[in-house]
Amino acid sequence: MHRPDKPPPTRHLALALLIGTTCAQAVQAPSTLVDAARGAALVAAREAGVNNPTATVATPDPRLRLADCPRPLSARMSGQVRLPGRAVVQVACPAAPGWSVHLPVSVQAKADVLVAARPLPRGYRVQAGDLRRQTVELGALNGQYLLDDDAALGQALRRSVASGERLTPALLQAPVLVRRGDPVMMQLKSANFVIRANGRAMASGGAGERIAVENLSSRRIVQGTVTGDGRVTVDF
């Protein structure tokens, strides 16, 4: 009985190599996922005003086997993000087979933040000489830092701070310029006239806040905006 010839061993080896190569090309390289996630995180950080950011992306699960995407990957931040800090990036294939994965990413950046140059008491209004700068990693601070002097100057401290302590938005408040019961100078404004009158504050307030004031001449109570120490502007 005639038996068909067996393929030579070299044909088996070539076929195996071809199949192996085809399979390897059909799987998305994990490094491309990492690169796409890192790129999206860095773009988002720069758009948020972060200078010189770096990003560390978690290594994808080695068991992950995604079909090779025929088009460039898309990547975007997922959920509410505060950068620098931790976030999640969604990396997706915009064409068939249309998969997507989520990769954790950590965005880091160093900056010179404002700290107190000396001990400062509660209620103190911050001046330029009270500030100095300290270089820190921002990622773990969750946005609780100040970079610009203007954000602190003239603001009042909610509590006392130690020398070298980092200043934060939560530590500062607009200083009280008018206190309840104090006499105030009222400026009554309209498109055609400005009248000044003596008044009495019915509430305390800082710059830009609206409070009730009593006109001592007419005994009328009106709403006005605090515009300075002991000054309230009432628009008609």
Rank of each mutant, 00 (worst) to 15 (best):
L157V: 06
K6I: 01
L138I: 06
R76E: 14
T135I: 05
V34W: 01
R132E: 14
V43M: 01
A201W: 12
V91H: 00
D149Y: 01
L83T: 04
S106I: 06
A151M: 11
L138H: 12
T227C: 10
Q187P: 01
W99D: 01
G228R: 11
V232Q: 03
R82P: 00
V50R: 04
V222D: 15
R179C: 01
E214N: 08
P94Q: 05
G181Q: 05
A36Q: 00
A140R: 05
A45L: 06
L120H: 03
R76K: 08
Q25Y: 10
G208Y: 12
L177F: 06
V126F: 02
Q28N: 04
M77L: 15
L167G: 11
L157Q: 03
A87V: 01
L114M: 12
P53M: 02
R11W: 11
R196T: 13
G224D: 06
P121R: 03
V161K: 06
L42C: 02
I195V: 15
V184I: 14
R82M: 10
A111Y: 07
K6N: 06
V176N: 00
G20R: 08
P30K: 05
V89W: 02
P4Q: 05
P175V: 11
S100P: 00
P104C: 03
A58W: 09
G228C: 10
P84N: 09
L131P: 10
T22I: 12
D229L: 13
D148L: 12
M202D: 13
T135G: 07
S106D: 11
A116G: 05
T227W: 11
D112H: 13
R166H: 10
